[in-house]
Simulated scan of single mutants.
Amino acid sequence: MASQRSKKKAVPETANRYQVKSLEKALLILELMIDEGRDLSITEIGQRLGYGKGTIHRILGTLRDRKFVRQYPATKLYGLGVRTLTIGTPSKKENFLRKSMVPFLRELHLQCRETVNAAVNEYNQIRYIFRLESEEMLRISTPAGARFPVHCSATGKIFLSYLSNEDIKRIHGGKNTLKKMTDRSIGTIAELINAVETVRKKGVAYDDEEALNGVYCVAAPILNAKGECLASISISTPKNRITEEKSDQFAKMVMATARQISDSLDAS
Rank of each mutant, 00 (worst) to 15 (best):
S141T: 10
L138T: 10
R38V: 10
K67M: 06
I242W: 04
A219P: 06
S232N: 03
S3L: 12
L132T: 00
A267N: 11
K157H: 04
N213H: 06
Y51P: 13
S164I: 06
Q260Y: 08
G79Y: 01
A154C: 05
M33K: 13
G46S: 04
T188S: 10
K246P: 03
S262C: 05
S247D: 03
E44A: 12
T55G: 05
E244W: 03
F96V: 08
G46V: 01
M253C: 12
T14K: 13
N117R: 09
S234P: 02
T75V: 08
V11N: 14
Y78H: 14
K180T: 12
Q19A: 15
Q260G: 10
E94F: 01
A15V: 04
I42Q: 13
P238T: 06
A205T: 07
Y78Q: 04
D39N: 15
S161G: 06
N194D: 15
K180A: 11
A205K: 05
R17V: 15
T237D: 07
G54Q: 05
L265I: 08
H109E: 11
L138P: 00
R38H: 12
T188I: 01
E228G: 08
N213Q: 10
I261C: 13
V150F: 01
Q111P: 01
V116Y: 07
R200P: 08
V20C: 14
L60S: 04
C112N: 02
Q47C: 11
L77A: 14
R200I: 09
A220V: 11
T14M: 12
A154H: 06
P90W: 00
R5P: 00
T182N: 08
Y72N: 15
S134W: 02
G37Y: 07
V196Q: 03
I42L: 11
D207M: 02
K157F: 06
E44N: 10
R200C: 12
E135W: 04
G54V: 05
K239L: 12
G227C: 14
V120G: 06
E166F: 03
T43F: 03
V215T: 03
N95S: 08
V82S: 14
D35L: 15
I242D: 07
I171D: 11
G145L: 05
I29N: 06
D167T: 14
